[in-house]
């Protein structure tokens, strides 16, 4: 669905990627994690055709994104972190934007904004940032575009809206779609993401399925000093130490994305070795 081969990209003199290789397949929700400025948003914009790579290639649904052919754009929707919506009513927005997307489903859109508790006839400009974002997310999902790119989608959403977002996204995903979510709010999306990709200094530091991760790693409390010493990563809390350790029992536990991220960033060598076994 999305194939990135040997991608190099730089902003003037600041290199972002150098020889990046990645594959994104249909039917998955990918979580794109990384420090600030590591190129998560740039990768999404390269996939959407908003940026042109200096070297290497990107193929999305068989198209070269930067050609920005209408048939390609009909099947890719991006929810950027900084977004713009015109100063019109929601019905007018649907009337004038939806016809560009041949698979747009108006009923789905109405359902999504109802779940988000957005008045159907309100004007976009009178809405708060969070409400506008909810309209944009609803629109993105209703387009039925096969590629959905979301850059920090839960930023600006209140607690209730975050759980509504998770519910809607889980319902909306179908086998033909590929959703890539770049985020720092890992807790918001923990149960949605089924593959984690971590970018660091323009390289892929980690790229694994959630199933494989929970088979190989366990995230738990440890009260024994030996357990803590043997852990890949540990941090103290009020009720003991929380650790990331190799999963010896083989029982699949619950994934803690935040801990996983910290473990990879601080001890990537050990993690890489463990996953190569």
């Amino acid at each position: 669905m999305i194939s990135i081969k040997n991608l190099s990209f730089a902003y003037k003199k600041k290199p972002v990627f150098d020889g990046l290789n990645l594959q994104f397949k249909a039917g998955h929700v990918y979580g794109l994690l990384g420090k600030n400025g590591t190129g998560k948003s740039s990768l999404l914009r390269n996939i959407a055709g908003l940026l042109y790579p200096q070297n290497g290639s990107i193929t999305v649904n068989g198209f070269t994104p930067f050609e920005r052919l209408p048939v390609f754009l009909e099947d890719v929707f991006m929810v950027p972190e900084e977004f713009y919506l015109p100063d019109i009513s929601v019905p007018d927005f649907i009337k004038h934007y939806a016809p560009f997307y041949p698979r747009f489903n108006s009923e789905k859109f109405r359902n999504y904004i109802a779940v988000f508790e957005i008045p159907a006839d309100s004007t976009l400009q009178n809405m708060s940032y969070g409400q506008k974002k909810k309209v944009l997310i609803s629109f993105a999902l209703a387009t039925n575009a096969r590629i959905l790119l979301m850059d920090e989608p839960t930023n600006g959403l209140d607690i209730m809206s975050k759980s509504q977002f998770r519910k809607i996204l889980a319902e909306a995903l179908d086998e033909e779609q590929c959703i890539i979510i770049s985020t720092h709010q890992v807790k918001d999306l923990e149960n949605l993401i089924d593959r984690i990709t971590i970018i660091d200094e323009g390289k892929i530091l980690f790229d694994e399925n959630v199933e494989t991760i929970t088979k190989k790693l366990s995230f738990r409390f440890a009260y024994d000093a030996e357990d803590v010493a043997a852990a890949i990563y540990s941090e103290s809390s009020l009720i003991g130490n929380v650790i990331v350790a190799p999963n010896i029992d083989g029982d699949e536990g619950k994934l803690d994305l935040e801990l996983l991220y910290k473990a990879i960033i601080t001890n990537s060598e050990k993690i890489t070795k463990l996953f190569q076994q």
Binding site: R45, A48, G49, L50, R68, L69, P70, V71, L73, E74, V76, F77, M78, P80, E82, F83, Y84, L85, Y97, F100, Y101
Partner: peptide, 17 residues
């Protein structure tokens, strides 16, 4: 503007249109 630029360029229509 980044936000408006994304909105403009990603509208499914050709550069000629």
């Amino acid at each position: 503007s980044r936000s408006k630029g994304i909105n403009f360029l990603l509208v499914p229509a050709s550069a000629f249109e």
